[in-house]
């Protein structure tokens, strides 16, 4: 599903070059559950952004869903994000003036799903994420865990194949973080390809494939049944 070959991402800051990604080769199959760990500044977020088509690599080949993303123009990339990719961020990124229901509905609004169908899907999604009674609340009236669940509900309402989560529990306490992880893993069980960036070793160990990055390189790629598989 994902095929990276010799991918580089170089940022130019003044006359200095920052190599955020160096020579990344990576292939990910549908339905995988990956964790991505490594020290701060090792390039985890940058890699996730490249995989999510938010950032273009400086060099290298990148195939996604069977298509070379270098061939896609901005509009086509936006369509791929709309149809196939979901993002979850550490700081939730809910639109503060919109209600929970409206935040969750955003991807369907962008995809021009008719209103009746949209309302129905939002209602079902909120129910599935235990947010039904918070539908008309605004983000500042929600707890951290509810906010992240809203964000995940939004990321997955468009039925993407790939879910990219950048430190999804980074702003949550342990208990709430565990709840959120449970929600993500349930989505993976339903067939979603899940990539989670985390600093939490316990969380990292739950994945069946664990990548380790240092200084822009992938230095570890460990496959073993994770804690999540064991729990099943």
């Amino acid at each position: 599903m994902i095929e990276l070959q010799g991918v580089q991402r170089v940022f130019r800051v003044g006359d200095q070059e920052v190599h955020a990604l160096r020579d990344i080769d990576l292939s990910i199959a549908p339905g995988e559950y990956l964790s991505l760990m490594g020290p701060s500044g090792s390039g985890k977020s940058t890699l996730l952004n490249v995989l999510g088509l938010l950032d273009r690599p400086t060099a290298g080949r990148c195939r996604l869903f069977g298509r070379d993303i270098g061939d896609l123009d901005d509009e086509a990339q936006a369509r791929v994000r709309r149809q196939s990719i979901g993002f979850v961020f550490q700081s939730f990124h809910l639109v503060p003036r919109l209600t929970t229901a409206q935040n969750v509905a955003l991807p369907l609004v962008l995809a021009e799903v008719p209103r009746a169908e949209r309302n129905e899907r939002v209602r079902a999604q909120l129910a599935a994420f235990g947010l039904a009674d918070r539908a008309e609340h605004r983000p500042d009236e929600l707890s951290g865990g509810q906010r992240q669940r809203t964000a995940i509900a939004r990321a997955t309402i468009g039925r993407p194949q790939l879910l990219l989560a950048d430190e999804p529990t980074g702003n949550l306490d342990r208990k709430t973080g565990a709840d959120v992880v449970e929600v993500l893993e349930k989505l993976h069980d339903e067939g979603l390809t899940l990539i989670v960036v985390t600093h939490d070793p316990d969380l990292g160990r739950r994945a069946h494939r664990r990548l380790r990055m240092v200084d822009g390189r992938i230095v570890g790629d460990e496959r073993a049944p994770g804690a999540h598989d064991a729990a099943r």
């Binding site: 936006a78 791929v80 994000r81 709309r82």
Partner: peptide
């Protein structure tokens, strides 16, 4: 800005 970034992440193209 964050909202714009989010909309793009959700698949809004620049013209939208």
């Amino acid at each position: 800005r964050a909202e714009v970034g989010l909309l793009k992440a959700l698949g809004a193209a620049a013209p939208t």
